[in-house]
């Protein structure tokens, strides 16, 4: 039984880590993690709603 991790996952937008449990050549369990957080929901609070599109475009 072995556990493999692929980090970074490339050719995507954003940061992603994949971990997989391998048992006899079969993946028996897997986990994905987004390894970057900016808190745009928090940043948006209390702002002029007309500006929201410009902030959320950057996600």
């Amino acid at each position: 039984m072995a556990k493999i991790a692929i980090d970074p996952v490339t050719r995507i937008e954003g940061h992603l880590r994949i971990e997989a449990q391998v048992d006899g050549g079969q993946v028996t369990d897997a986990w994905s993690s987004a390894t970057m957080w900016r808190g745009i929901e928090t940043i948006l609070q209390g702002r002029d709603p007309r500006d929201a599109w410009y902030f959320t475009q950057r996600i």
Binding site: I6, D7, P8, V9, T10, R11, I12, H15
Partner: peptide, 13 residues
């Protein structure tokens, strides 16, 4: 360049 490169994971590093 993570968004365009072929290798991933350890190979990328």
């Amino acid at each position: 360049h993570e968004t365009v490169m072929a290798p991933a994971g350890h190979q990328a590093e």
